[in-house]
Design a binder for these strands. Structure first.
Length: 585
RNA sequence: GGACCCGUAGCUCAGCUGGAUAGAGCGCUUGGCUUCGAACCAAGAGGUCGGGGGUUCGAAUCCCUCCGGGUCUACCA
């Protein structure tokens, strides 16, 4: 065993080797190496317990055998012990901690270490995917920031990532928009603020369809006309798309969100007849109440709840286009994995989509990619209900982001009035946008979360300001010492960590790969957030306990080394999450 | 009715595919700046992990059941 980037994996390998030598059945032994509670060591292996249990063996005795068979170099790097019912604990020697920390000296080095996690896999990530002609609001932000973070993380870990913004540019809302445009357009308002006017038309028509069935029929007719290629409706459609995409781009730029493709629903329009035909000929789809639907008899609910792939009026819906999208991503992009980000309320739809796709691809002999519906909960107000403005409308994303920056500016000005205003503005932008972003990432995406300005802008706790503050403190040390953080000469001659605070920080540093692995395997960025927060915490404790710039050259070098790598991991991690870091704040 | 998500300290949340004495932050109590940034750090109090069964060496985690909250459930996405 050498001190590799991913020590847990090295230990896993060593344990598997030892297990074979000790006479275990290798295919049924999984070492289960994980980061340990610091009280017990750096890593622990729990797999012996399960193996012994299944065979009614004494787990401690079995652990003894495995340890005795471990490759000899494991012992050079860590002390190994058995504890409790049969845990194997590994405590890295300070010299080995130093070796890892010294080696991980640049973002590129970290990336090359992380590459093995998802090397060779091609991911299509579908995120943001707003509806055309509606403004982005607070409900869109979580998918945007989680999606961007997931893309960056997967790419960092070696995957080839294709980012696709699957814009809703073809659905029923266009029936409404076109009908509204034809009957109630206010030209002056359109010239002044196109999105406001389009939104007004949409709301007006939507309300009208609910009170007058004849309007609903008219709206549906407009959609059918559009989807069958009517020239007038097509021209209107193009105009509406152009107006709204400009507004999206503005926000994407502000939040540093990027796409390789924007293949909206309309892109799949000409591919739909083939889908209907295939699903019909394989027998998966059938006619019901005039619509083309798919039932899943083996499923408790979807045996009676249909997946409607073509509406009774012949128009497409999002099941139609999503099926075409699955096919296109498989055949054209050759995706190994597809991840679609939407809020959890669409879980039914994606479960039906996947069940249908599995059967369809199986019956037609197509390769089946992995699929993950990366769902997430809603953002709630402090009253625990869906967050809204006083008038009951959703909060516009533009407004929310502007308020975040404004609030951060007030805080920055209070704490650092001596900085020039331009710099305070810059800091406020990074802190304000970072706070919104981090709040969306730090909590497990499965649950709803309660939005609170005071909480996300606090300098205490698991927040963006706390992490950015830690970064600026490390930078300050180097600035005061007249050094660059990545200056190798400042850290040459570093001795292994010694004091409790040094050791605790060193041990947190080496756990970075575990956090990356968890995050990208489960597509849950909060694992990385938790890790970075704990790292910043260990740094703060270390900083309070030990003076870094001391006279003794070797002590100074080893503490500067710890600072340098803390900075590297914090900045790398925060950038992967999409946050901008600061030199001063 | 059915399905899915959630229920952990007063509040907001972690707890990594069953592991060691369940952890943070806020709030509360107390201590620490003439010393690299105190927007910080250290210490303390605070829990029947919604209730009840079960599976086993071991359960916040898995199974069953009940309670409470949310979401979805045929032509919106």
């Amino acid at each position: 065993m050498h001190v590799s980037f991913d020590i847990a994996s090295s230990l896993d390998q060593a344990l598997r080797t030892a297990a074979v030598a000790a006479g275990l059945e290798p295919e049924s032994f999984s070492p289960e190496v994980r980061a340990a509670d610091p009280r017990y060591g750096d890593f622990q292996a729990n797999g012996v317990l399960a193996y012994a249990k299944a065979r009614k063996l004494n787990p401690r005795a079995l652990a003894e055998h495995i340890i005795a068979a471990l490759p000899s170099d494991v012992g050079e790097h860590c002390s190994v012990s058995i504890a409790g019912p049969g845990f194997i604990n590994f405590l890295l020697k300070p010299e080995s901690l130093l070796q890892w920390i010294t080696a991980q000296d640049t973002t590129e080095r970290l990336k090359s270490g992380a590459t093995s996690l998802h090397h060779g896999q091609k991911y299509v990530v579908d995120f943001s995917s707003p509806n055309t002609a509606k403004q982005l609001h607070v409900g869109h932000v979580r998918g945007m920031v989680i999606g961007e973070a997931i893309c960056r993380l997967l790419a960092f870990c070696g995957a080839e990532v294709i980012r696709d913004n699957h814009i809703g540019d073809w659905g029923t809302q266009f029936g409404k928009l076109i009908w509204g445009y034809k009957h109630h357009l206010d030209q002056a308002a359109l010239a002044k603020d196109p999105l406001e006017e389009l939104e007004r038309l949409y709301k007006l028509t939507d309300a009208a369809t609910k009170s007058a069935p004849s309007v609903l029929d008219a709206v549906r007719a407009e959609l059918v006309l559009l989807q069958s290629g009517d020239a007038e409706n097509l021209a209107l459609w193009k105009k509406i798309i152009a107006l709204s995409s400009g507004a999206f781009t503005e926000i994407y730029r502000l939040l540093d969100i990027h796409f390789d493709h924007q293949l909206g629903e309309s892109f799949y329009n000409d591919k739909l007849p083939a889908i209907y035909a295939e699903l019909g000929s394989t027998g998966l789809a059938s006619e019901s109440q005039g619509a083309l639907v798919v039932f899943h008899p083996e499923h408790p609910r979807f045996k009676t709840q249909p997946f409607i792939i073509r509406k009774s009026d012949g128009a497409a819906n999002y099941a139609s286009t999503d099926l075409a999208t699955m096919l296109y991503r498989t055949e054209h992009f050759h995706a190994d994995a597809i991840a679609i980000l939407t809020d959890a309320r669409q879980a039914d739809h994606f479960e039906q989509l996947w069940l249908t796709t599995e059967k369809w691809f199986m019956m037609t002999g197509r390769p089946l990619p992995r699929f993950t519906h990366v769902s997430f909960g809603s953002i709630l107000g402090e009253d625990g209900k869906a967050i809204k403005t006083r008038s009951g409308d959703p909060i516009k994303l533009k407004t929310l982001l502007a308020e975040a920056v404004d609030r951060a500016f007030v805080l920055v000005t209070a704490k650092a009035p001596e900085l020039p205003e331009s710099e305070r503005r810059e800091i406020a932008t990074a802190v304000g946008l970072g706070a919104i972003r981090y709040a969306d990432l730090a909590q497990n995406r499965s649950s709803d979360y309660i939005f609170s300005w005071d909480k996300i802008l606090s300098f205490e706790g698991n927040t963006a300001p706390y992490l950015l503050y830690a970064v600026s403190r490390v930078r300050s040390i180097f600035r005061k010492a007249g050094l660059e953080p990545n200056d190798a000469s400042a850290v040459t001659g570093a001795t292994p960590p010694e004091s409790p605070a040094e050791l605790a920080l060193a041990r947190k540093l080496i756990a970075f790969p575990v956090a990356l692995k968890l995050t990208t395997e489960q597509l849950r960025p909060h694992f990385l957030c938790t890790y970075l927060y704990e790292l910043a915490g260990e740094f703060s404790s270390f900083y309070a306990a030990e003076k870094v710039v001391v006279d003794d050259a070797s002590i100074r070098a080893r503490r500067l080394l710890l600072c340098s790598r803390t900075l590297l991991l914090l900045e790398t991690g925060l950038h992967l999450l999409g946050l901008r870091t600061l030199v001063r704040m």
